[in-house]
Simulated scan of single mutants.
Amino acid sequence: MYESQIKAFKKAEPKTLGAVQIVIGFFTVILSTIVYKLHYHIQREIIILIINGAQLVITGIILVHTGRRPSKRLVLTTIVLQLLTAAFDVVGFGLMARHIPFRGESYYYRDTEFLVNGILGTLIGVLVLACIIGLVVSLFGVYSLSVSAIKELTPIPHSTANQHYGAGLQAQNAIHSGN
């Protein structure tokens, strides 16, 4: 990767966003496990959230590593994983939104309605935040691989940054002056 590509990617603060994703992943797994233990009839949705939380942790770890030592392959891998995680986040908060407000049918469930509603609302908010982080990191990754490379490869005439472009002009001036 070119230096301008690395700078463009690091503008997104990938290490910080990766750490936030790791925390969100652990938070999602813990809250999903609590709801899984309380209510058995929404187990399929909760299992998807637990998988999503584990995926957030793995994606966050890869994002932190990519922020430390960015390479073209790691940035491409991060883009794909972030888009995949964003898709799972959309599915996760879509599944949870079906159960808000939670209504229990038995006496046991009525005691925990307030708790479950709070946890499900928190999970939806956290998954929306994770989705936004994934999309932002993906956009910065695509930007850093495309636009910054074009800037690096485009020659600027009469620039001191690319000395080999100015050599032709100096040779032309030497010919015209008779040297």
Rank of each mutant, 00 (worst) to 15 (best):
F93L: 09
L74W: 10
T33G: 14
K10C: 02
F102C: 11
G134P: 06
I6R: 05
K15M: 07
A54D: 05
G18M: 07
L115D: 12
A97G: 13
R103M: 14
R69D: 13
V20N: 03
G60D: 03
Y108T: 12
S106K: 15
C131R: 02
L127D: 04
E13A: 06
F93A: 03
L129Y: 08
G18F: 04
I47R: 06
E13M: 03
I124P: 02
I62N: 10
G92N: 09
L84E: 10
K11M: 13
H41V: 08
S32G: 15
I6A: 08
H99K: 13
T16F: 11
F88E: 00
L76Q: 13
I48S: 09
A87H: 11
T112V: 15
I51V: 13
V91T: 03
I132P: 08
V137H: 04
H65I: 13
Y36N: 11
I119K: 02
V20F: 09
F27A: 07
I24V: 10
I61N: 10
I51L: 11
T78A: 12
L81N: 05
I34E: 09
K15Q: 10
I124S: 00
Q5K: 10
K72S: 12
V75Q: 04
I50Y: 02
F27D: 05
T112K: 15
A54C: 14
F27K: 06
L17A: 05
G134V: 06
I47N: 07
R98H: 12
T85P: 02
I6D: 00
L84G: 14
M96E: 05
K7Y: 06
A12P: 03
I100Y: 11
I100M: 14
A54L: 15
E13I: 00
E13G: 01
I6P: 00
I51H: 00
L17F: 10
G121R: 10
A19P: 00
V20A: 07
L31V: 04
V29D: 05
Q55K: 09
L81R: 06
K11Q: 14
T28Y: 06
M96H: 01
Y107C: 07
H99A: 12
T122N: 11
I119M: 11
P101C: 13
A54P: 00
S71Y: 05
I48G: 03
L76M: 14
